[in-house]
Simulated assay, not measured.
Amino acid sequence: MAFSNFIPHIAPTILFYFLLLPSPISSLNITLLLSSYPSFSDFNSLLSSTGIAADLAARSSLTLLAVPNPLLRAPSSPNLADVLRYHVLLEYLSLPDLRRIPPTGKLVATLLQTTGRAAANSGSVNITIDSNSITFHSPASNATLISPIKSLPYNISILSLNSLLIPADPDLAASETRPPLGLNITSTLINGHDFNVAAAMLAASGVISEFEADEGGAGITMFVPTDEAFADLPPSAKFQSLAADRKAVVLRFHMLHSYYPLGSLESIVNPVQPTLATEQNGAGSFTLNISRVNGSVGIDTGIVQASVTQTVFDQNPVAIFGVSRVLLPREFFGRDPIDLYKPSGGGAPPPDIAMSPENYGPANHLSAGGAGGGGVGVFWGLWCTVIFYFLN
């Protein structure tokens, strides 16, 4: 009875709180967001006229580097769209995130990198910080942060720069044609310069044909260990001693049977993800635990903790990411991580896989995919509960 008498008193307060929460958004309308800031109208117009604004509609967890009208000097390059793609970082970076950048800087992939037209890391922006400023570097230019404009954690952060950034050799890639869906994964990895071992193993095992066959369906997300990751495999792992069919399972363990761009991985609702190996060996087996770790994407196999180090390729329905370690399933390699990896050179062990809280309030998952579905369901469940108590 006391509880039922208490509800009418708190219901209006709770209702008012939920009225203040932003409503769920199914897609990102960058034009609408920037329309509230007239000083960025020219930059906003360029995003619309080149089609970049439409390209961003299905993405989340990104940072837009915008330039105000008085400082905007659009280049005469025939590839203005690629210049603008270079101003879309494929990672959510708030001002506190930027202030935590190490002295060595941080390399962040851009939307230009996803086109396949940027060689090696030329589609990435290097961010450095000193006591006076935060600077964004391209091979051809630098720009300084003026101020943050808008932040919707962990979906979009809009930052103001004092000039446009010009990517390396923007005129060399005149074609606006994107890579076809029939992507040659082996060639893509070899062109990445640091994935030769993985490319050779995929080709020799025959599973590469399975991966490429899945490109046209729900898509694929591949985690590819670097050559250094294979070199760092401890002898106790006995990876090379595995039978050929078991090596093929380990390779399948590195692939998700869905397309996840980097932003979706960072905001993934269910961290336990089945792999292609799960489909062949039964539910609950050969799963990966994926979550946001220290501003990056961490992957935990139960015995190995790795991190995403770079975006190799990202165009729906294929995402390929470089990872720092070979992902060893505990089904084959036991359950004790100490026997497999010990810090070398006195270094610290990998961080625990855990979400990093940020003090910006609830996140609005802007992608239309499943990454934000759980949050929306919880919101509307609470909303209906409040309305029921308020009206009764």
Rank of each mutant, 00 (worst) to 15 (best):
A2H: 11
H9V: 11
L19R: 12
A53L: 01
D55V: 00
A57V: 00
L65H: 09
L72D: 13
A74Y: 06
I101W: 11
Q113A: 13
S133M: 09
S133R: 12
A140E: 14
A140L: 12
N142P: 00
N142I: 14
T144C: 01
S157L: 02
L164K: 03
L164F: 06
L165F: 03
I166R: 01
R178F: 15
P179Y: 06
P180S: 14
I185Q: 01
T186N: 08
L189F: 04
I190F: 13
G192D: 15
H193K: 14
D194W: 11
G206M: 06
I208Y: 01
D214F: 02
T226V: 01
E228L: 10
A231H: 11
A244L: 11
V249G: 00
R252D: 07
M255K: 00
M255C: 15
L262E: 02
A277V: 07
T278W: 04
G282C: 09
G282I: 00
A283E: 13
A283S: 13
L288C: 06
N289G: 00
I290E: 02
G302P: 00
N316G: 07
P317H: 10
G322P: 01
M355L: 12
M355A: 07
P362D: 08
P362F: 12
A368K: 12
G369W: 08
F379E: 10
F390C: 05
